[in-house]
Design a protein around this nucleic acid. Structure first.
Ligand SMILES: [Mn+2]
Ligand SMILES: [Mn+2]
Ligand SMILES: [Zn+2]
Ligand SMILES: [Zn+2]
Lengths: 137, 137
DNA sequence: TCGTTACTGCAAGTGGATTGCACTTACCAT
DNA sequence: ATGGTAAGTGCAATCCACTTGCAGTAACGA
């Protein structure tokens, strides 16, 4: 079941703008903020409103097709396609803002410890590193 | 050197409002958002502007007297006193919003691995768990 | 006590994100 | 293929956390 089918199967529709949003996300090498995505769409001459970008991102997130990252140092949110890639985290350069995947999650084992210690039922976690990338050192 | 001295030593002044902000933070069992802190101050009949709360928090953070948490799921920031307590992380209840300390950091060992893999120089990290607390399960 | 300058309050401004509503369009049933 | 319905869109307004400008206030060292 590809992205198109996923959308249709949920009762959503595949529209001109939704296709364009997905296309930009699929081609991006790094997670995009709504504003960046909007700028990309303008560059590709796609007539779309920023609100529509936001609403599509919400929908795609609800469908589990994109992941929302909260790189809160930035005061904005970013999205990346979920397809294929597994759960992972990111590191962000404090100087140039570059964001790189960390293909690991060291926290799976920790959940049991936390649940025992706090009596919470652990759901999600967010983890983000920041530092200086090779170019900016 | 206590909090008062730290402030004075840096050329800052110990004002009525700053004392009040510190007092509320010191008595809180959990990290406070600027708005919550402001509400607490009102309850204690402290005449203060929300802007002054914000500015004091910035100052106290710069002095290293408070730690700013970025529990980004909330869309707001929280502060807690730093005094004594060491680096740690938090878990937040998705239902009632309660925030609890996790007295551990599993990431120190990981820094070397990440630096080797990404060639970044790692600075900070932020880590936050969410789930359901005992009462909300 | 006085003068410097950190600090405060009030008002306005920013920027990311959300909401209301009328209009449009995808797409399923006929 | 067509038409009806409900999802989706654009535009404007709004929200909300947070910041900035500035004139007036007050901390505190000389
Ligand atoms: Mn990624
Ligand atoms: Mn804490
Ligand atoms: Zn993880
Ligand atoms: Zn840590």
């Amino acid at each position: 079941m590809d992205v198109n089918d996923e959308i249709r199967a949920s009762g959503k529709r595949m529209t001109r703008t939704r296709r364009a949003v997905l296309s930009v996300l699929e081609q991006s090498q790094y997670p995009l903020s709504p504003t960046e995505l909007y700028a990309q769409l303008k560059k590709h001459k796609v007539a779309i409103d920023l609100v529509t970008v936001y609403r599509n991102l919400v929908t795609l997130k609800e469908l589990g097709l994109v992941t929302q990252l909260e790189l809160h140092q930035e005061g904005q949110v970013r999205y990346e396609m979920r397809e294929g890639r597994q759960h992972h985290h990111h590191i962000r350069c404090k100087s140039c803002g570059r964001i790189v995947d960390l293909l690991l999650c060291p926290l799976k084992k920790l959940t049991a410890v936390i649940e025992k210690e706090t009596r919470f039922v652990v759901g999600d976690h967010s983890l983000e590193f920041s530092g200086w990338c090779p170019r900016c050192q």
